[in-house]
């Protein structure tokens, strides 16, 4: 009796979120999945006939007549993945030592620092990226300073290069990497580090055998949280990227807005999702394997 009542209560409590996710997340997802197998309409929209060339265009079985296989799509996908991976690596390198430093601060300064880390969320992403545009452009802050102190003789071409895109993504993603890392570093048992040193492990051994495994859940968590939005990111390459910094997210955006090829855009979206899901599953499995915590 009590059990049934509990499940009724649970059902009532879960209904709103289930309904919300069902209507605004699952349903659109299904629509995208279906669209990716439909014929593009002449002036946008779809025609309800089965069509597999959307994927063919990307993976290479296009007929070369109606749809042409172009390796550029796979190249852009590969570029997006490598940009995202690079972003993960760079944010990790930036945040890992800082997490240790912050966890050793006094309570007061730690709070100040954590507030500073979340400060960027208080202003618009677009505004912050335009600030980078102003810094990086040939007559911008960076070049002016470097020219004036004589470090360079002509302005660096950073803006609208892949470097600018990765820089922008690292900037945007730093808080997302830092917070999970900090959480795992902060709960690290200092006594275990001492135990390791006491048992004859030098600092490198202690890091590899105790510190790294214990903070790995935080590293994996941060990596996943940074990687997923990075792969599909289109705002950063849009503002800082130019042609060579184009990522798959921009491609999707173009298909839906300017090219009006909804099915092709849907197919690209499905591919992003497949990649992201694979990464997620592999890392969750990995985290489970190492995270046998006491």
């Amino acid at each position: 009796m009590a059990l049934r009542r509990q499940s009724v209560v649970l059902g009532v409590l879960l209904a709103p979120v289930t309904l919300f996710l069902g209507i605004f997340f699952l349903l659109p997802l299904c629509i995208i999945a279906v669209f990716s197998f439909l014929t593009p309409g002449l002036y946008g929209g779809v025609e309800w006939t089965f069509y597999h060339w959307n994927y063919g265009r990307i993976f290479g079985w296009a007929d070369g007549f109606i749809e042409i296989f172009e390796p550029v799509y796979l190249q852009i996908l590969w570029r997006s993945l490598s940009f995202a991976a690079l972003t993960v690596i760079l944010t990790l390198i930036l945040c890992y030592p800082v997490a240790f430093w912050v966890s050793r601060l006094s309570d007061r300064w730690r709070l100040v620092f954590l507030f500073l880390i979340t400060l960027p969320f208080f202003s618009s992403l677009i505004v912050r990226l335009y600030a980078w545009l102003l810094i990086l452009k040939p007559t911008g802050l960076l070049n002016t300073v470097l020219l004036n102190i004589g470090l360079i003789s002509e302005p660096l071409e950073i803006l609208y290069t892949p470097a600018a895109v990765v820089l922008g993504m690292v900037y945007v993603m730093v808080p997302f990497m830092f917070l999970p890392l900090y959480a795992s570093v902060d709960t690290l048992d200092r006594a275990q580090i001492e135990a390791s040193l006491d048992l004859g492990a030098n600092r490198v051994q202690t890091f590899l055998k105790v510190v790294l495994p214990q903070t790995l859940p935080g590293i994996i968590g941060g990596a996943v949280i940074v990687f997923i939005p990075s792969v599909g990111n289109f705002v950063v390459p849009d503002v800082l990227g130019g042609a060579k910094g184009l990522m798959i997210g921009n491609l999707v955006e173009q298909q839906f807005l300017s090219s009006r090829n909804w099915p092709f855009g849907s197919a690209l979206s499905m591919i992003i999702m497949a990649v992201v899901l694979t990464v997620l599953m592999v890392s969750v499995r990995r985290a489970k394997k190492v995270g046998g915590h006491a």
Partner: peptide, 20 residues
């Protein structure tokens, strides 16, 4: 000598066992 070079071992109050 740093701790890891001393021929001395410790049983810690919290045990400090490696949970992983």
């Amino acid at each position: 000598l740093p701790p890891f070079r001393r021929p001395v071992n410790t049983v810690f109050q919290s045990y400090a066992l490696f949970g992983h």
